[in-house]
Amino acid sequence: MSEPAPASQPRATSSGPGRVLIAVYAIFALSATARAAVQIATKFSEAPLAYLLSAVAGVVYILATIGLAGHGPGRRRLAWAAVGFELIGVLVIGTVTVLDAADFPDDTVWSVYGRGYGFVPLVLPLFGLWWLRRTRAR
């Protein structure tokens, strides 16, 4: 009798193009977090909602970076959750800022679908989710 074939292990998300993805997430984690920190520290009263949303985006990018760079099912779940939340955030905040710009006197990372960042915040989670799916166990 032959043994059933073992289920394949997921491919590391930090391999191949995943390295570039992690680097981009790390850059966004640093830039969004630093921008939000400066805005909150220096002019929070001008646009508190926008600055807090930028801080949330920074935390999401940090979590996505940790999840994508790590190994194991826990890190993979973290990456799925962070990147999925990021996509929802970009779509919701992007739509709200297009429909009612008056509530956002200053841009967030996700305003108008990431227009201030060359729309990378809109494309990044799509690529991230694709990569997580591509590297999953078969």
Score class of each variant (00 low, 15 high):
Met1Glu: 10
Ser2Gln: 11
Glu3Pro: 02
Ala5Glu: 15
Ala5Asn: 11
Pro6Gln: 06
Ala7Gly: 11
Ser8Asp: 12
Ser8Ala: 14
Gln9Glu: 13
Gln9Asp: 14
Arg11Ala: 13
Ser14Met: 03
Gly16Phe: 03
Pro17Glu: 08
Pro17Asp: 09
Arg19Trp: 04
Leu21Trp: 09
Ile22Ser: 06
Ala23Ile: 09
Ala23His: 11
Val24Tyr: 01
Val24Arg: 00
Tyr25Ser: 01
Tyr25Val: 01
Ala26Asp: 07
Ala26Asn: 03
Phe28Asn: 07
Leu30Met: 12
Ser31Gln: 10
Ala32Thr: 13
Thr33Gly: 14
Ala34Ile: 00
Ala36Asp: 04
Val38Ser: 13
Ile40Lys: 05
Ile40Leu: 15
Ala41Gly: 14
Thr42Ala: 12
Thr42Ser: 14
Lys43Asp: 13
Lys43Glu: 15
Phe44Lys: 06
Phe44Ser: 10
Glu46Asp: 14
Pro48Lys: 07
Ala50Thr: 13
Ala50Cys: 01
Ala50Ile: 01
Leu52Val: 14
Leu53Met: 13
Ser54Glu: 01
Ala55Leu: 13
Gly58His: 04
Val59Phe: 10
Ile66Lys: 01
Ile66His: 02
Gly67Pro: 04
Leu68Thr: 09
Leu68Trp: 03
Ala69Gln: 08
Gly72Lys: 12
Gly72Trp: 09
Pro73Met: 04
Pro73Glu: 14
Pro73Tyr: 01
Arg75Thr: 09
Arg76Asp: 07
Leu78Cys: 02
Leu78Asn: 03
Ala79Asp: 05
Ala79Ile: 07
Trp80Leu: 14
Val83Arg: 06
Val83Trp: 04
Phe85Glu: 08
Leu87Asn: 11
Leu87His: 11
Val90Gln: 11
Ile93Thr: 11
Gly94Asp: 11
Thr95Asn: 11
Val96Glu: 14
Thr97Arg: 07
Val98Ser: 06
Val98Arg: 10
Leu99His: 07
Asp100Pro: 02
Ala101Trp: 08
Ala102Cys: 02
Ala102Leu: 04
Asp103Lys: 09
Asp106Gly: 00
Asp106Phe: 10
Asp107Trp: 08
Val109Met: 09
Trp110Met: 12
Trp110Ser: 13
Val112Ser: 07
Tyr113His: 10
Tyr113Lys: 00
Arg115Thr: 08
Arg115Gln: 15
Gly116Ile: 04
Gly116Thr: 13
Tyr117Leu: 12
Tyr117Phe: 15
Tyr117Met: 07
Tyr117Lys: 06
Gly118Gln: 12
Gly118Cys: 07
Gly118Tyr: 03
Leu122Val: 06
Leu122His: 07
Pro125Cys: 10
Leu126Val: 15
Phe127Ala: 15
Phe127Val: 15
Gly128Ser: 10
Leu129Tyr: 11
Trp130Phe: 14
Trp130Ile: 01
Trp130Met: 04
Trp131Gln: 03
Arg136Leu: 03
Arg136Cys: 02
Arg138Leu: 12
